[in-house]
């Protein structure tokens, strides 16, 4: 049976991992490759590296980071942050990235998804979406949640799938940093609407939240940052717990 995936997310700034609480206050949590290797050994199924500064100041070092990660880790990883064009992705895939996450640039120019899917295959293209609930509707936000758009969440993820996205990485800005659980209602609705996998992000605070996101939220993968970075939830404990709850997980490699 296909396992539900546990994905630590490493936000990168100036080559170091950071985690923003509601994307504002940043705290340093270490070296990305070292931390990634630690998570890989601990049983993480996949890793996501997001360069959170890239939207503002274009990072050319992202490819070096991708190469460094690919060289040292033997689990799949997604890399994102400021990806605007085909050439950005060429460099990252050549460096060994398994998938790339696109966010703001795809909202501004949706054809980017078609272009990436055509050039590299759907499975390479992860559409990252940050959304907030405004007057009862989920709206897509840009630049790490700073800019609200008129684009509605469910319309946008449906369009992204049509255009060739292979996976959705959904972050609820309302839940992110709260440690009060994932946006399970929105996740379940997207999971029923779409035929591509969904990575849930924003709100993980404890093991129970992961069990809920896989059952109520129907997510294919659960992503979190600070609870893993600061040791509040150990991946091995989390997997034992999920297995006990009947959630299919990959046993930690022998």
């Amino acid at each position: 049976m296909l396992a539900k995936r546990i994905i630590p997310c490493l936000d990168i700034k100036d080559g170091r991992t950071v985690k923003g609480v509601n994307f504002v206050n940043l705290r340093d949590a270490g070296d990305p490759v070292e931390l990634g290797a630690k998570y890989s050994l601990a049983g993480a199924d996949e890793l996501v590296f997001l360069d959170i500064t890239a939207t503002h100041e274009r990072r050319k070092t992202l490819a070096d980071l991708a190469r460094d990660i690919a060289r040292h880790l033997n689990i799949p990883f997604t890399i994102g942050g400021g990806i605007k064009a085909l050439e950005d992705v060429h460099v990252l895939l050549d460096a060994g990235a398994d998938k790339v996450a696109v966010n703001s640039a795809a909202v501004r120019r949706p054809e980017l998804i078609d272009e990436l899917a055509y050039a590299f295959g759907n499975q390479f293209v992860v559409l990252a979406v940050d959304a907030k609930l405004v007057d009862g509707d989920w709206y897509v936000h840009l630049n790490g949640g700073r800019i609200k758009t008129e684009q509605k969440l469910y319309d946008w993820v449906g369009e992204a799938q049509e255009r060739g996205a292979g996976e959705i990485l959904f972050t609820s800005m309302d839940h992110d940093g709260t440690k009060a659980g994932f946006a399970n209602d929105a996740l379940a609705r997207m999971s029923e609407q779409l035929s591509i996998p969904i990575i849930a992000s924003g709100g993980a605070g404890n093991k129970e939240h992961f069990a809920e996101v896989f059952t109520k939220g129907k997510a294919d993968a659960g992503l979190a940052a600070s609870i893993f970075h600061f040791g509040e939830v150990e991946i091995s404990d989390l997997k034992d717990y999920l297995a006990g709850e009947g959630v299919p997980v990959r046993p930690i490699s022998r």
């Binding site: 049976m1 296909l2 396992a3 995936r5 292979g166 035929s195 996998p197 294919d220 990959r250």
Partner: peptide, 12 residues
């Protein structure tokens, strides 16, 4: 019934 394509992830 709910299985998504592509088959993406870890399987036995």
């Amino acid at each position: 019934n709910g299985d998504k394509v592509p088959h993406m992830g870890w399987n036995e």
